[in-house]
């Protein structure tokens, strides 16, 4: 009963937050909802008996988005006008709803951990070793491929982010 309620709460938060993350016109607001959606998914992982995956979800995804957030705030907008704009972006009306829902998720998590005991909804609790064994066992090609993908992504980003004058030879601008 309690498990069910906890599941539905987290699932609905995940769905609603995802929809809102996509539909916000302001990217910063969208990111707020995206963080919430990722936290809700992490709670779902926890319920399924995968605490390690849940922790990774929070650290890697939610953490990465927070860093992205910081970068956007730090690099793109400087000066007092930008500060006013940021204050406006993060007006209480914007963050109260996601904040309350995040608190709800935390309560959800505590309720599962304290009250529902050790009976996860999945096949059992999956320890970190099992995750590692799966990654470097059956999915080893995927892991190696992901590293190549990231390297190619870095090279591609380097090309796109280069200063323009490096490309200014006689051929530049000729279309």
């Amino acid at each position: 009963m309690l498990n069910n309620f906890c599941f539905w709460f987290a699932a609905l938060v995940a769905l609603g937050a995802s929809v809102l993350a996509v539909s916000r016109r302001n990217a910063v607001h969208g990111l707020l909802w995206l963080v919430l959606s990722l936290l809700a998914v992490a709670v779902l992982f926890f319920m399924l008996g995968a605490p390690f995956a849940a922790a990774l979800e929070v650290i890697v995804y939610a953490g990465a988005i927070m860093v992205l957030f910081l970068f956007a705030v730090m690099m793109l907008h400087l000066g007092p006008a930008a500060q006013r704009q940021e204050a406006q972006w993060l007006a209480p009306g914007v963050w109260i709803a996601p904040g309350l829902l995040a608190l709800g998720l935390a309560a959800d998590l505590i309720a599962i951990a304290r009250l529902a005991g050790d009976a996860p909804a999945g096949a059992g609790i999956i320890p970190p070793e099992a995750v590692g064994a799966a990654l470097f066992g059956p999915y080893v090609i995927g892991v190696e491929l992901a590293s190549v993908l990231l390297l190619a992504g870095v090279v591609a980003a380097y090309h796109l982010g280069q200063r323009r004058d490096r490309s200014l030879g006689e051929g530049a601008g000729s279309g």
Binding site: A152, V155, Y158, S167, G171
Partner: peptide
């Protein structure tokens, strides 16, 4: 276009 070598690796 005044080659940059990352073309080949990409």
């Amino acid at each position: 276009v005044r080659a940059y070598g990352e073309y080949w690796s990409l």
